[in-house]
Structures are given as structure tokens and as C-alpha cells.
């Protein structure tokens, strides 16, 4: 279990992580979701004791990372696939890591096999593609057969096959009863990978729920109704207590499905021109929740102006 309590990191005037508290449960894949620059990587570095928090603390099974004995046996992490010396072979990279935590050298070949890098084990890591580097990073994370695993944006830059592989792999790790904490800025990816979500924006906690609840709550189902007898229908719907919103010449109903609305329309004798369920996208939901907490807005209008002016 990973536990963050009032975790805070300040760089000069910028508050990168702001009084962040959450728990990452055992045996589940927990997604760490937030827009770019929300403080996900900083938080992960603090969990690993690489960066010192300005305030609060991050505990792994109740201990600070630096107090863990042979930490690679407790926590495996892939924060950046490029944290490898380019002239060192994949095997040598894993060998020194194994040695540092007194892990059996045989384990190096085992993890190389698990991630499918056996054939390139003696090649220099600098020549690896991003996908291969990610696999090497995962091999390093698995080296000590740890109970807790941290992955920072593991699918970034991967092809669909690689993404699928990682997704299945995380599920398997969680099914084995491990704690898996994986960050991403893509809600659609997290909806498929994670069972639990910790959502942050601008370093602050936005919500911690199960992915199911988060998606359901964020993408409320609505129904669009068009009818020449809209005012009669509005009155009838109004009596049931559902929430109504006008959108052009149509009515958007929240809290009632198509069948119920259709029956109600029939009983009031209203003619229907359209009755269509609307499903909000996950991205929209994510934007709604984190919209005002995005660190770097693109300023779309400005960009268009610049392009138009030929700059």
C-alpha cells in the first residue's frame, strides 16, 4: 500500500504538489490521472525518495522509501525509460541493479525473458526503440519481484500492440496481489487499465474513486428530445423532477432514459421528432473536472490568430 499524507512540493514560487493525500490499495491497478504538469511525476519521485517533499510524507507499507531494506525487493518503478546509460547493455544495466540489492543474478535473465528482450540483452541500450526501452524499464522494475509497482506514463509513445501488452501486464500484476500505481494524462487509457483512480490537477487532489464511479459520475447520460409539442412535454417532464436544459430547438433531459420519456410523451399525446441518448465522452468529463486546473492552456484563439497572421 502506498500512502501520501499532505504531500507538498514547492519549487520557488510554484507549488507543484499541494497538500496531496491519497492511498493506493493492494491488489488493484490504481490510475494516477491528471493533465500534463499536474505534479504526477513529482509525486512519484517523492514516493521514491528521489525528491524531498517540502511538507507531508509518502509511505510505502508504512515506511519511508529511504528506510526500506533492499528497496528494489519492495518497490519496483519505471519513471522514465531513458534513465539508462546508452553505452551499457540491457543485461549489464540489470546486472548492476540486481547486485545492488543482492538479487540472484539468474533473475536478470528471467525478467529479460518476461519482457521479451532476451534476444537483444547484450545490445547497447542507447540503440533501443522507445518500446524496447519501456520494456527494459519494466524489467528493471520487476527485478526484485516487488509487491509495489510504480509506472509513470508507461504507454507514452508506444504502438497499439505495446499499449495492449502493458495494459494486460498491469492487470496480471494486480491479480497477483500487488499494488500497481500507474500515471497517465489519458483518461481513455486509464478507463481501460485502472480499477481505482486518483485524479489530480495543479498538484491538488480532485477525486479518489473507483474508475467505474468516476466515469459514471463524470459522463451522466442525457437524452435529447425534439418535438413540435415541446412546451406540453416540458410541463409533463417537469412534474417528474428530472433536470431539463434547452439546447436550440431541443430539450436535453438528464435522469430519465429514452423508454420512460417515450412513454411519457405518448401519455401526454406529444409527437416526437427525435429521441436520442447522448453519451458524454470520457475526455469531456476529464476536461470538465480538470478544465480550470490545466497548467498550460493552449489558448486556441490566440494560436489561430498567429497562424492566420503567418507567424
Amino acid at each position: 500500500m502506498i500512502e501520501a499524507v499532505g504531500l507538498t512540493k514547492r519549487y520557488g514560487k510554484t507549488l507543484a504538489v499541494d497538500n496531496l493525500s491519497f492511498t493506493v490499495p493492494t491488489g488493484r491497478v490504481t490510475g494516477f490521472l491528471g493533465p500534463n504538469g499536474a505534479g504526477k511525476s513529482t509525486t512519484m519521485r517523492m514516493i521514491l525518495g528521489l525528491d524531498a517533499p517540502t511538507g507531508g510524507s509518502a509511505l510505502i507499507d508504512g515506511k519511508h522509501y529511504r528506510d526500506l531494506h533492499q528497496p528494489l525487493r519492495t518497490v519496483g518503478a519505471l519513471l522514465d525509460a531513458k534513465w539508462v546509460h546508452p553505452n551499457r547493455s540491457a543485461r549489464a544495466h540489470l546486472q548492476w541493479m540486481a547486485k545492488s540489492n543482492k538479487i540472484n543474478p539468474k533473475r536478470v535473465d528471467e525478467v529479460l525473458d518476461i519482457v521479451g528482450l532476451t534476444s537483444v540483452a547484450n545490445k547497447r541500450a542507447g540503440g533501443f526503440s522507445l518500446g524496447m526501452s519501456q520494456r527494459l524499464g519494466i524489467a528493471a522494475a520487476l527485478l526484485g519481484d516487488p509487491q509495489v509497482l510504480l509506472f509513470d506514463e508507461p504507454v507514452n509513445g508506444l504502438d497499439p500492440e505495446g499499449i495492449l501488452w502493458i495494459r494486460k501486464f498491469m492487470h496480471r500484476l494486480a491479480e497477483e496481489g500487488r499494488t500497481v500505481f500507474v500515471s497517465s494524462h489519458l483518461l481513455s487509457e486509464m478507463a481501460l487499465t485502472a480499477q481505482e483512480l486518483v485524479v489530480i490537477g495543479r498538484g491538488k487532489l480532485i477525486s479518489q474513486t473507483s474508475t467505474e464511479d468516476f466515469v459514471a459520475q463524470a459522463t451522466e447520460n442525457t437524452v435529447r428530445v425534439r418535438s413540435p409539442h415541446l412546451s406540453a412535454l416540458r410541463t409533463a417532464l417537469g412534474r417528474t423532477g428530472v433536470s431539463l436544459r434547452d439546447e436550440g430547438d431541443s430539450l436535453v433531459v438528464t435522469g430519465m432514459d429514452c423508454a420512460e420519456i417515450g412513454e411519457l410523451a405518448a401519455s401526454t399525446g406529444a409527437v416526437l421528432h427525435e429521441l436520442s441518448p447522448q453519451r458524454g465522452s470520457l475526455e469531456e468529463a476529464f476536461m470538465q473536472l480538470t478544465g480550470d486546473s490545466v497548467e498550460y492552456h493552449a489558448g486556441l484563439a490566440e494560436t489561430i490568430d498567429l497562424v492566420a497572421a503567418g507567424k
Binding site: 525518495g49 528521489l50 522509501y65 528494489l72 518503478a77 522514465d80 531513458k82 534513465w83 546509460h85 545492488s100
Partner: peptide, 18 residues
């Protein structure tokens, strides 16, 4: 300095927090 350049210093401190 190459450990800092390639950030392997982080892997090092991750493996050996002391």
C-alpha cells in the same frame, strides 16, 4: 557526470537510497 546526464543517478539512488 554521465550518471547525472543520463539520469542513471536516479536509478542508483532508487536502488541504494543511502
Amino acid at each position: 557526470t554521465t550518471e547525472y546526464r543520463f539520469s542513471t543517478i536516479r536509478s542508483t539512488f532508487q536502488a541504494i537510497p543511502n
